[in-house]
Amino acid sequence: MRQDLDIGGILFSPFVAYAGAAFVIMVVLRAGFARIRFSRYVANPPLVEAGLYICIVALLVALF
């Protein structure tokens, strides 16, 4: 997906789609993390989640 997205005549960068897809993936992961109480295993859960989000965006950009 290296083409610009045309939504209502407005062109969006493909990065916007990657960031949105990563957000959806993080919502699913966050539910899983809550289920296993992930916050008990890390010192700063928001920092870990932000790092995972960046890694997911990077993987999406690299793979697609």
Results as ranks from 00 to 15, higher is better:
residue 1 M to L: 11
residue 1 M to W: 06
residue 2 R to K: 13
residue 3 Q to L: 06
residue 3 Q to F: 00
residue 4 D to Q: 09
residue 4 D to W: 00
residue 4 D to P: 02
residue 4 D to K: 10
residue 5 L to Q: 12
residue 5 L to A: 14
residue 5 L to S: 05
residue 6 D to R: 12
residue 7 I to N: 11
residue 7 I to W: 05
residue 7 I to Q: 11
residue 7 I to T: 11
residue 8 G to K: 08
residue 11 L to V: 07
residue 11 L to K: 15
residue 11 L to D: 07
residue 12 F to A: 04
residue 12 F to D: 06
residue 13 S to Y: 10
residue 13 S to I: 03
residue 14 P to T: 07
residue 14 P to S: 08
residue 15 F to C: 08
residue 15 F to A: 14
residue 15 F to Q: 14
residue 16 V to F: 12
residue 18 Y to P: 01
residue 18 Y to D: 05
residue 19 A to S: 14
residue 19 A to Y: 07
residue 19 A to I: 06
residue 20 G to N: 15
residue 20 G to A: 15
residue 20 G to S: 14
residue 20 G to P: 00
residue 21 A to D: 06
residue 21 A to Y: 01
residue 22 A to N: 00
residue 22 A to S: 07
residue 23 F to R: 12
residue 23 F to D: 10
residue 23 F to A: 10
residue 24 V to H: 10
residue 25 I to K: 07
residue 25 I to M: 11
residue 25 I to N: 04
residue 25 I to V: 13
residue 26 M to G: 03
residue 26 M to Y: 05
residue 26 M to K: 07
residue 26 M to I: 10
residue 26 M to L: 15
residue 26 M to E: 10
residue 27 V to N: 08
residue 27 V to C: 11
residue 27 V to R: 11
residue 28 V to C: 06
residue 29 L to H: 00
residue 29 L to F: 09
residue 30 R to L: 10
residue 30 R to S: 13
residue 30 R to A: 11
residue 31 A to S: 07
residue 33 F to N: 02
residue 33 F to I: 01
residue 34 A to M: 04
residue 34 A to R: 11
residue 35 R to P: 01
residue 35 R to K: 07
residue 35 R to W: 04
residue 37 R to W: 07
residue 38 F to W: 09
residue 38 F to H: 02
residue 38 F to R: 02
residue 39 S to G: 14
residue 40 R to V: 09
residue 40 R to Q: 14
residue 40 R to F: 09
residue 41 Y to K: 12
residue 41 Y to E: 13
residue 42 V to K: 12
residue 42 V to W: 08
residue 44 N to C: 11
residue 45 P to E: 06
residue 45 P to W: 00
residue 45 P to K: 02
residue 45 P to N: 05
residue 45 P to Y: 00
residue 45 P to M: 08
residue 46 P to D: 07
residue 46 P to T: 08
residue 46 P to A: 06
residue 47 L to Q: 15
residue 47 L to S: 15
residue 49 E to D: 13
residue 49 E to P: 01
residue 49 E to Q: 14
residue 49 E to R: 06
residue 50 A to K: 11
residue 51 G to D: 07
residue 51 G to E: 08
residue 51 G to H: 06
residue 51 G to K: 11
residue 52 L to M: 13
residue 52 L to V: 11
residue 52 L to K: 01
residue 52 L to P: 02
residue 53 Y to C: 02
residue 53 Y to F: 14
residue 54 I to Q: 09
residue 54 I to H: 01
residue 54 I to W: 03
residue 55 C to G: 12
residue 55 C to Y: 02
residue 55 C to M: 11
residue 56 I to N: 02
residue 57 V to K: 03
residue 57 V to W: 00
residue 58 A to M: 08
residue 58 A to I: 04
residue 60 L to C: 10
residue 60 L to P: 00
residue 62 A to P: 04
residue 62 A to R: 13
residue 63 L to I: 15
residue 63 L to R: 14
residue 63 L to Q: 15
residue 64 F to M: 13
residue 64 F to W: 13
